Simulated assay, not measured.
Amino acid sequence: MFDHLVFGVSDYEESKAFFLKALKPIGVTIASEGPLGVELCSPDSQSSLCIRRIEARTSHLHLAFTAQNRQQVDAFYRAALEAGAQDNGAPGLRPQYHANYYAAFVIGPDGHNVEMVCHHPEA
């Protein structure tokens, strides 16, 4: 739905390391990096996540990423916790959204609520 999402972070290196590790299960890597920050994306996606260096205090965001299967959701959750995130909802079905909404939530750097969601039934 979006082409790119840009947001500032208070600790650039910490946030870059966190998102690279947490989003590795869906193939996210560095597309480009420069003085303003870093652009992250998956090889099969035209959408990107851009992290910028800023001095001001950041606002909390809810960032939801699409997984192709439930195993990627599980892998994201483990990787995010290993990268220093706080649990905000272990992997599982969220039937209040729809019958196959399988997601995990963590609180990442700067207090952002980061979600990985799969909309497909169990394979």
Rank of each mutant, 00 (worst) to 15 (best):
S15R: 10
A64R: 01
P25W: 10
C50A: 12
G111A: 08
S32Q: 12
Y102W: 09
F2G: 09
A99E: 15
Q96R: 14
D11H: 03
A80E: 06
S10W: 00
H119K: 06
H112F: 05
P95M: 10
S47V: 07
E55F: 10
Y12Q: 02
P43S: 11
D74S: 12
H98P: 03
R57D: 14
A75D: 15
R53N: 09
D44K: 12
D87N: 14
G84T: 04
A56G: 10
Y101W: 05
G92R: 02
A85M: 03
P25L: 08
C118Y: 04
S48Y: 04
S59A: 14
D110I: 10
L23P: 08
I107G: 07
L63Y: 07
S10Y: 00
V9R: 03
L36R: 14
D44M: 06
N69C: 13
R78A: 15
F7D: 01
A83Y: 04
I51R: 06
H60I: 15
E14C: 12
F19V: 02
A67C: 12
N69W: 07
A83M: 06
P109L: 05
A56C: 07
S42N: 04
G37A: 08
E33K: 04
S10R: 13
P121V: 02
L36E: 15
L81H: 03
R70T: 11
H120N: 13
S59H: 13
P95H: 10
P91Q: 09
L81S: 04
F19E: 03
L63A: 01
G27V: 01
R78D: 14
C50E: 13
I51K: 07
L81V: 04
D11I: 01
